[in-house]
């Protein structure tokens, strides 16, 4: 027991580490000369050491699962929303792909007009849906025909691509690049994808044909 009530307060302050350095020094001097206080402080220190030696337990492994099972069930839409919020990239990719498909299907067979892309002299026969590159004339660069056939009698310095049509080639024709016919939606998608990527991601194989 502390030697006085006043000392009991001091002991508490001391144990709570609420004393200034000087107060601590003074108090320790007293404790060293007072058997009662000394014993009291020693006992308290021992008590705290014992309590603090109590080991820490881990919660049972099943605790989380037990609680999760008891949580109110969420409606499916909520879960779906959560999934979407968690995977924004997948949703974005899916959305883009959908837009891509829709615009493609609109482009493919959506319009009947003949579209020709290329530089040079050519004849468009609207009623026959045929594009003719006459003998003696040349197309500098690639030639692209959509929604029509093509008859090459002259010269094409690049590739010939026919979408939704066929190509006819005369013996006099000179085509430096490849000839490609795209008549299926699937092929068309592939072609667009290829184009898209080669435009967006320059792969460094610029062989001088461009620009």
């Amino acid at each position: 027991m502390a030697c006085s009530r006043e000392k009991q307060t001091l002991i508490n302050q001391y144990m709570d580490e609420e004393m200034t350095l000087q107060e601590t020094k003074q108090f320790e001097e007293h404790v060293n000369s007072c058997a009662e206080c000394k014993q009291h402080v020693t006992e308290l220190k021992k008590t705290i050491a014992i309590v603090q030696s109590a080991s820490h337990f881990e919660a049972p492994a099943s605790l989380t699962a037990n609680v999760m099972n008891k949580l109110p069930k969420q409606p499916k839409t909520k879960k779906w929303q959560m999934w979407m919020r968690k995977n924004p990239m997948i949703i974005t990719a899916a959305t883009f792909f959908l837009i891509f498909l829709v615009s493609l299907s609109a482009a493919f067979g959506g319009e009947d007009e003949i579209v020709v892309r290329g530089e040079g002299h050519f004849i468009i026969n609207e009623s026959e849906r045929i594009v003719i590159v006459p003998e003696g004339s040349s197309i500098s660069g690639d030639l692209l025909i959509r929604n029509g056939d093509v008859e090459v009698n002259g010269e094409v310095e690049g590739d010939v691509t026919v979408i939704n049509g066929e190509h006819l080639q005369a013996s006099t024709a000179q085509i430096s690049g490849d000839i490609e016919e795209i008549n299926e939606a699937f092929e068309w998608i592939w072609y667009e994808l290829k184009n898209f990527f080669t435009k967006v991601i320059p792969l460094g194989n610029n062989d001088g044909s461009e620009e």
């Binding site: 337990f57 969420q74 919020r85």
Partner: peptide, 21 residues
């Protein structure tokens, strides 16, 4: 708070030992 129950499991993992103790 947004209603993500899986997140609550994460929260539990952080505090379950202390709460249990």
């Amino acid at each position: 708070k947004r209603g993500n129950q899986d997140a609550f499991a994460e929260l539990m993992e952080l505090y379950k030992d202390k709460v249990y103790h």
